[in-house]
Structure formats: C-alpha cells, structure tokens
Design a protein around this nucleic acid. Sequence first.
DNA 1: AGTCGTTACGATGCCCGTAAGGATA
DNA 2: TATCCTTACGGGCATCGTAACGACT
Lengths: 324, 324
Amino acid sequence: MKLQQLRYIVEVVNHNLNVSSTAAGLYTSQPGISKQVRMLEDELGVQIFIRSGKHLTSVTSTGKEIIRIARDILSKIESIKSIAAEHTCPDKGSLYVATTYTQARYVLPHIITHFIKKYPQVSLHIHQGSPKQIADSISRGNVNFAIATEAFHLYEDLLMLPCYYWNRSIIVPTKHELATKKNITIEELSKYPLVTYTFGFTGKSELDQAFSNAGVTPHIAFTATDADIIKTYVRLGLGVGIIASMAIDKKLDLDLVQLPTNNIFSNSTTKIGFRRTTFLRSYMYDFIRQFASHLTRDLVNHALSLRSNKEIDVMFQKISLPIK
Amino acid sequence: MKLQQLRYIVEVVNHNLNVSSTAAGLYTSQPGISKQVRMLEDELGVQIFIRSGKHLTSVTSTGKEIIRIARDILSKIESIKSIAAEHTCPDKGSLYVATTYTQARYVLPHIITHFIKKYPQVSLHIHQGSPKQIADSISRGNVNFAIATEAFHLYEDLLMLPCYYWNRSIIVPTKHELATKKNITIEELSKYPLVTYTFGFTGKSELDQAFSNAGVTPHIAFTATDADIIKTYVRLGLGVGIIASMAIDKKLDLDLVQLPTNNIFSNSTTKIGFRRTTFLRSYMYDFIRQFASHLTRDLVNHALSLRSNKEIDVMFQKISLPIK
DNA sequence: AGTCGTTACGATGCCCGTAAGGATA
DNA sequence: TATCCTTACGGGCATCGTAACGACT
C-alpha cells in the first residue's frame, strides 16, 4: 500500500469518479491512476469502485470506509508536514478559509488586512461558496477553516467554535413608506413583499422560524445568496430587504434606511470550524483569535479536548459572545 | 514522504534508537533505514533524532510529535487492511492479546479454547508481560488488546472496558494454625509474614490500601509476579499467601486452604483495552464478548463514541459486572 | 577492539507517460 | 460519435543490498 494510491482513490472520489479529470487535477497521466487504483484493489483483495464496463459508477460500501480512513491518513500526513514547518519557519505556510459571501465581503476584510500584514509569508486563500460547498471543501481537506452561519448539520464532523451572535436588519429605500416608522411588528412586515437570502444561506432558517412562530406567512418576492444583490433589488423597489446587520455599509448605503427590528428575529451564531485532526499552526490559532478575540489558544485547545459539539456549546454558554 | 519512512522512524524508536537491530527486525539492510530516515529529515527540514557522532542518542521534541502521528497513520493503514480482510475472509486474521500471568494462566484458557474452535483461521497470540510491557506493546501497535487489572494510568490513551470484579483469597497450607480459623481480621493477618504479588502486579495497590486504611503495617516476606510461585512458597511455609481468587485451582490446590476474607479487601476490576483507532474485526468483538459477556458489540461501539475513560466508567456503573 | 551509523556503488524493480484498444452513453 | 477506462510497452528513477569507511564506547 502506497500513500499515492490512497491519494488517488480519494481524489477520484473527489472528482466524482472521473479518473481523467482526476489525472488532470493531479498533473499526472490517467492510466497511471487507473493502474494504481487497480493495484490497490488487488492488494487488498476488495473492490473499492464499482465499474460498469469501463466506467466507474459508484463506490462500494467497503470502499467508503476505506476512503474515510484514507482521508484521515492523508490529513495526518499534512499534520506531520505542518509540525515540521512550524519548527523551521513558524510564520511561513498557507491558510485556506471557506466561507459565505457575507463573511467574505463584510466581516473578513479588515481581519485579513491585519493578518497578512502580520504574516506576510503566509499565503491566504478565501474560498467563497454555498454552505454545501464549504462543507465539501473542508471535509475533503481542501481548506483549513470553515466559517459558517447556517446549516450546522453539514459540519457535524468538525470542531465548531462559536464566534459571535448577529441579527438581521430591515432595509428600505429612503422614500419607502416604512422609512420613518419607529416600531415595526412581524405582522406588518408580512404585508410587504420581502427580499432576503436564499434558503440555506446566512441564517435563512431563523428568519422562517420567526414568521412561523408569529403565525404569519411572509410574501417572499425575491431571494439571493448575497446581501449586495438583495440591496440592489431593494433599491429598485422590489420589496423590503432583510439582511444581516453586518452587511450594511454606513458609508455606501446612504440611500437605504435601516429600521429597528425590535428583536423580532432571534440571534444567529457565526462559528468557525475545522477538522479535529488538523494540526493547528500558530498563525492559525492567531487567525481564529483575530476573528473572535475570546478564542484564545488555550480555549481552542480545551474545546479540542471535548468530544462533541454539544459539549462545546455548553462550554460556550458560560462565555459571553460579542454581538454584531 | 513514504509510508516506509514512517515505519522506519517508528521502529527505530521501538528498538531504542538502535538502527542495526531495527534493520534485523524488519528483515532489511541497516544502511537502507539510515538513508530513508535521513531523507525524511531532509524532506521535512527538521531533525527527528539527535545524533552524537554516529549514534542516535535521543528523539527531538519535534520528532516525538511526528512519531506519535506516524504511529496513528500506520495504525490506520492496518485498519484499511483489516476492513478489506473483513469483507473478503471475515473469519481469517490474527489476534494479539497482551496480559499478565494470572489472566493467561487462569482466566483465558477456557475462553481461548472456545475461541480457537470457533475461529480456526484466526491465529491467536498471547503476550504475557508486566503491566509496563503490556502498555508498551499496545501503544506500539504490537498487540490488539490489553487485559489488565492494575496500573490503569499506563493505559490512559486506550479505551478501557470493565470486564469483571474480583478479589483476593488468603491461602495457607492445611497444617497452618490459621487453617481452621473462620473469621480473620486484617490486624491478625498483619501478624503473619505474607507472600503476595510484586508491586504493580495483579491488584497489589488495593492490597496495600487495605492495610494502610486499617492502620497496620504488613510484613511482606516475599513477593512474586505470579500466583504459582506464591503458592509454592506458601507450601514451603514461608508465610500466608494472598492471591487473586481466580488463581486457586480447586483440583490441584488440595493441599492449600482458602480462608474467607470477609471483604477486608475492596474489589478490583479487570479491564480489556484497545487503541481507539483500532478497526475491530468481528472476531475481535466476539473475543471481547466471550471474555465479558455483557460487552456486546453495541455496547463496545457505544463506549467508543464516548470521549474519556471517565465517561466509560460512569456508563458501566449502570451495568452490574460479574464477580469472580 | 567491537559496535554502530554513514557513504559509495551497482542492480533490480517499480512508477510514470505515451500510444493503442474496446466499451458505454 | 465522443468520452472514458484499460492494456501494452519503454524509459527513467528511486530503493535496496553489498562493501568499505569512520566514529564512538
């Protein structure tokens, strides 16, 4: 059994069982992968992939178990490299962060500015994507950190650390009839066409929950995955916008009015997560700390010593998180 | 980085930094190992071993971390092989058990008899050794299971499952003046020279505890690591023997009298343990079950889902263990 | 003086890449 | 018909084993 063989089977799965595109992705030849995969299967005496003629159609149940462990192994190989790098050049390396639009556009910029100034030798990459894409990226080991506000069930294998609470703002154009309103209820809100996030993005489910709890059905006129598109359609008068408060830019959004929400929506939580097997470089601890100042190295390590995300949530109930 | 390189550094550590004996153990040449170790160090850019001239004297702190992860990786490689074997020939494989004399001599025989009859294709190996040797064997990955009654602090990295409670018996030759005594107290016992286990073997610390709690100092005339030697010296009249009750053979020990201990010693627990990363073959689950019938496959899996051995102990407080 | 790790060198064998073949959608 | 995996073949390179060297106990 060779490490390359494990890499190959994992990457073949990552490339949806397409060996050719896998080969392209690994800058190697397609027959080489094909052969190594078969050699591994021969050595183990089990099929990993089910072939229909000359196409790989699916992964056997045995194969799935093997793939899972192979991922662990490759991740630990990376850990060894990280340990070595940490001792030779502690400030040099790379950091991949997967997150959603709102974080990438409104929250991360000033943190990243500071980070790259402090660690000029660390190459930092932001993968922006849907919660599902983020979950895939991190479980495949393509990225170190996931920052998420939604669909935490996708991240169950990860260590998820709460970073801050946040809530929504209701936005309307300055000329809108609600623009001067001081108090707004959820019932009133439900009378207007709404423009907000697509399902599964940036706290959409808590939004639905609030309407459902109040027993009213909102009229969703339009949804988008990011706040800038929502703002654009609000500006066009398509409806009342509901976006994350941190997505309001006080300088650029002068033509929009932010109404007080009076806590009609419950708080959402933004969390940062990583695989438990990840070896955390010191600059990674620092990144976490810069993103959420209460997440000290010791606190992160303590969370790592806990088994489940439930225990972690309990632990963080004792710590007051900032509200954005 | 190659798997062989990881195997080499781990085995070099296992062989007390002696590359020559490592080479012999791996049936390969000594320069080959030497070179691969150096190549790995060059690739990682860190020293793993500290050399004084041409001798390896110790492992660097970085090296220790790397060794630990390398062991994990190699263990997972074995898991993959096990998964494959489980699907091709579920009843074929090997099982290594490390344990102390008392288990190997008095408890395991009838279990093993049954096991090898049920799984003739599984090659079963018993490593008998001191608690320290057992702990080394399992942490090095030489054995699958450790069965232990003592010094559980040595096994902290393992999943330890309680199997049964047991206690000691006091034995004297039939002609001894205590032979007809019905009730014996710990104070009386302390007046006689005692023959019992060496420190660190088969529940010696609970024994000391009992004397210490009673405020008396026992006179230990002789200690040995196994019950048969203790019996021999009891037969010679060297003193009163205190051994594990299961080490009394009703047929062979007719010349010895077993006195009622009246609960003057507290119960000890025998546990079976394995590394959490071990992939458990179905015959391994079955072995555990045969050793401790309450340890069903589901219960073992549930214990595996718990984080710490403390949680496991709590879990087993709800389950009544047999007493031997 | 003996044990032990490093260096040098030659051969085997494995892995990779190109090219051709056959099956599926 | 186009895509895709498999088989076949040849070149390059890494690994391994033998042998000689140098260092420490």
